[in-house]
């Protein structure tokens, strides 16, 4: 079938502001939006610019706004979008570098700010540190994050206050705060108790809806918030 793809385009070398362009592409129901973007780029206009790598939802390169929702272009099929017209725009709230490519630097800086690495104070044992399956299960969900930014850039609190650390960083803090092998949960809780930390979350659930990895983000944020309350009590 023929699909109309409406893409928000912007080339800083040519355009003063973003503008929508329309492309007609032939697509099957199982095609993904990424396939359609490739068709435009390879058959119609090589200047169309977007990031992508793995093409099966594991690398986090191609999160973008598709029909008004943040998703991975490689993980959303034409038949799931229903309808003959698909709109595509860059992730909201981050500076656009060109077409669908946004500047990710501030996003990664926030990720780094929560000390996203294991800090165990006891010396490394000869073999593995023991951890029960139950203890591991507590943070299993938040280990799945691929840092695609779909969550953070779907969050109204982030749009209103770009200094908000955002759901993705909290998810990654959660992953270590609840790891039984880690001894520095308190440091991360201090970072997140700050004015740009968890309290900016208004439990709107946009992040959870946007996450291509199905992470229960809002729940993770609530778990971190309770931990902060506990910690400061």
């Amino acid at each position: 079938m023929q699909i109309e793809l409406r893409i928000l385009r912007f080339d800083p070398e040519r355009d003063r502001k973003p503008h929508e362009e329309s492309y007609q592409v032939e697509a099957g129901p199982m095609d993904r939006v990424l396939d359609l973007l490739h068709k435009v780029k390879y058959e119609q206009d090589g200047t169309l610019t977007f990031r992508r790598s793995c093409a099966h939802g594991v690398c986090g390169s191609d999160a973008m706004l598709i029909n008004g929702r943040n998703r991975l272009a490689c993980k959303i099929r034409v038949d799931q979008l229903k309808g003959r017209r698909i709109t595509v725009a860059p992730l909201p709230g981050l500076p656009v570098m060109k077409d669908l490519v946004v500047d990710m630097e501030s996003f990664f800086a926030k990720f780094r700010s929560v000390q996203p690495y294991l800090q165990a104070d006891d010396p490394d044992p000869e073999r593995e540190r023991r951890q029960s399956a139950e203890d591991r299960e507590v943070f299993d969900d938040t280990t799945k994050c691929i840092l695609c930014a779909a969550c953070t850039t779907s969050c109204p609190s982030f749009w209103a206050q770009p200094s908000y650390v955002g759901p993705a960083a909290i998810v990654n803090a959660h992953r270590f705060i609840f790891d039984s092998r880690d001894d520095h949960a308190a440091d991360r809780l201090d970072v997140l108790a700050d004015g740009d930390g968890v309290w900016r979350c208004r439990t709107i659930f946009n992040c959870t809806d946007a996450c291509p990895r199905g992470i229960h983000i809002t729940q993770a944020i609530l778990e971190v918030s309770s931990k902060i309350v506990e910690h400061h009590a």
Partner: peptide, 19 residues
């Protein structure tokens, strides 16, 4: 592999808590 575990890699665990 042991070093990776020390770095924090969340391996699945046996009932004894080993990798």
């Amino acid at each position: 592999v042991i070093e990776l575990e020390h770095m924090g890699l969340p391996f699945n665990r046996t009932p004894e808590g080993k990798i």
